[in-house]
């Protein structure tokens, strides 16, 4: 009963922080896709370069998220951008790069030269090859990179509370320091359902985008 009371009293702040949380992720997403997929496509022709870029991004991903937020504060501090949403968004973009680049590379790799050649042989134009072969084949793999980034981002954005970016981290961290169980429970429920919900939703989209002939791989 008490808990429902809490929800009613605090519904505004809950909605506000949920919105904040999603905002961080949604702002980061287009940058992550643009930079990640773009880099993936650009470096796909150079094997050595792809290897180095993948290695570099995998090192970046090893850095624990609170530490990466710290690094953002350190780097952006001098520009007066050390607090608030910008460092959180940038940290998220950096984290998203690895799954984006990796999946883009493997998507491009999955389209064999033979397949393109046979498409050309059948008389497809460059445009038709792009829309009928390259995009349908690579979209699901790239989508799974996007899903990974988003699901990861939901957890990482929670740390944003510590740099005044707002978001659902507030309920957990403030709840912990104040010993307010109803806040913590709210944080857990929202974060967990956001993570599971987005994962489920994006998986569905992924499988809808996957051509039927490729589905057996999952």
């Amino acid at each position: 009963m008490n808990y429902i009371n809490y929800l009613i009293v605090n519904k505004d702040i809950i909605i506000k922080e949920l919105f904040n949380h999603l905002q961080i992720i949604l702002y980061a997403l287009p940058f992550a896709i643009l930079i990640g997929v773009g880099t993936g496509i650009l470096i796909s022709k150079h094997q050595k370069l792809s290897k180095y870029v993948l290695y570099l991004t995998s090192i970046l991903m090893t850095i624990p998220s609170p530490a990466l937020f710290g690094i953002m504060v350190i780097i952006l501090g001098p520009f007066k951008l050390g607090l608030g949403k910008p460092p959180a968004i940038i940290a998220l973009v950096i984290y998203s790069l690895l799954p984006m680049i990796r999946n883009t590379l493997s998507a491009i790799k999955s389209i064999s030269k033979e397949m393109i050649d046979s498409a050309k042989g059948m008389g497809m134009t460059e445009m038709q090859i792009l829309f009928k072969i390259k995009i349908p084949l690579s979209l699901p793999i790239i989508m799974s990179g996007i899903r990974n980034s988003i699901v990861m981002g939901i957890g990482i954005a929670a740390i944003g509370y510590y740099i005044s970016a707002g978001g659902l981290g507030y309920f957990i961290f403030a709840g912990l320091s104040r010993g307010r169980y109803e806040m913590i429970i709210t944080g857990i429920i929202l974060l967990a359902s956001l993570g599971m919900g987005f994962n489920y939703l994006l998986l569905k989209i992924e499988s809808l985008l996957t051509p039927k002939g490729l589905r057996f791989k999952n």
């Binding site: 957890g155 990482i156 981290g169 994962n199």
Partner: peptide, 9 residues
């Protein structure tokens, strides 16, 4: 897919 923060809490 559940954030680690939620598990810790």
């Amino acid at each position: 897919s559940i954030p680690s923060v939620a598990i810790i809490a």
